[in-house]
Design a protein around this nucleic acid. Sequence first.
DNA 1: GCCAACGTTGGC
DNA 2: GCCAACGTTGGC
Length: 152
Amino acid sequence: MHYWLMKSEPDEFSFADLKRCRREPWTGVRNYQARNFMRSAQSGDIVLFYHSNCAEPGIIGLAEITRTAFPDPTQFDKKSDYYDAKSKPDNPRWSCVEVGFLEEFKSPVLLEDLRQNPSLKSLLILRPGNRLSVTPVTAQEFREIKKLGSQK
DNA sequence: GCCAACGTTGGC
DNA sequence: GCCAACGTTGGC
């Protein structure tokens, strides 16, 4: 059992979108470190869903891994923004996982809340210049964030 | 829109 | 394998 934090720009794909469609393949990750994290994710792992590049960046709710890593179909789609000519179907370069809706937080845990909390100091997303869209979260960090999100 | 902090690319 | 140039991310 692992915990993950996954970023999405709400303009592209928001938590409300996930709530609507229930399950969604997490495609378009084109960073090797983030890809490797996704490859190590297991079914049932919990995902903190983070809204980035928006007015109020923060964690807005919980999702779960509903399918382990498989080849990201967008890498072979010439019409996709994420098309990668160097990736071959017999040796796919990029993976994705499927993510399922779990629950919306009572109140979002904003980036500033994360920053202010001493027990979340080592959260990877708070490291300067961190740009990974998928990062691991420890059980302690997860518990703290869930607690914050459950408060009104 | 700015810009810091990265990752990636490609020439050598 | 080095490293400069370039592209991207994402908070502000």
